[in-house]
Amino acid sequence: MDAIKTEGLTKYYGKVRGIEGIDLTVGQGDFFGFIGPNGAGKSTTIRTLLGLIRPSGGRAQIFGLDIARDRKRILERVGYLPSEAAFYPGMRVREVLELSAGLRRQDCRKTAGELCQRLQLDTTRKVEELSLGNRKKTAIVCALQHEPELLILDEPTSGLDPLMQKEFFEILRERNRKGTTIFLSSHVLSEIQHNCTRAAMIREGRILASGSLEELSRRGVKRIRLRGSVNTEALSGVQDLRFSAEGAEFLYAGEMKELLGALAAGEVQDLSITEPDLEEVFLHYYEIL
């Protein structure tokens, strides 16, 4: 059974497109990255999965449970970290954590204590006195303290300093090793690249590509670096073309035969053809499609 499965999931706000025809499969135990620029539909997808908004079309299941009918049962097994955490004014961090545990009817004191220690979170502070980073840490403990089977994280590292980001991802990797499925939404490609095993790219409400990170990197796009000169004008599928004193480099997604022909016709002293990193793939999809 998949942790998350959507089929044609669509959400329109009136006539405004939110997401359209999202097909997504996240297996149990996956560390899944969900990449896309701002406004691509990442948060809309997450909010639909969590039942905050109703889909205009399609369907979605979490652990085989329907998001519309079984919302409560799904949320018992899910921890959610919003991109912007908001808490009730006047409360102390400890009270927020207790409220969250109380709403789940679970005793989470032990895990909450461990997480607060690792994230260096002072639970006696009032929430309105917290910095952005400490608000984020509070939200992280709320999302993790009940040890959910599925973690849905929306831009989780905004506001966290690099040391805390490192500790946070260490916690996530530990949880993942224990079997927790992690769905990480981010526009920071390095976060996805360094932590996820599978990913999907979303742009303008549609999924552009989905698969393992290796598969995504291999999708026909190559990074070409050459010393010398070559006529790229005749080539289709050239992106991110940059010339230097010694030569040129570009991303190439066209026919290999055409590329080889162009290289043979040019004056090439040295050549390297490599797999692009995820960021380059993402930019490729972002710009071409």
């Binding site: 969590l50 409560k72 049962r73 969250s100 709403l103 789940r104």
Partner: peptide
């Protein structure tokens, strides 16, 4: 968002 992402109807 905080309240409604907990398992409460």
């Amino acid at each position: 968002e905080f309240l409604l992402t907990h398992p409460v109807t």
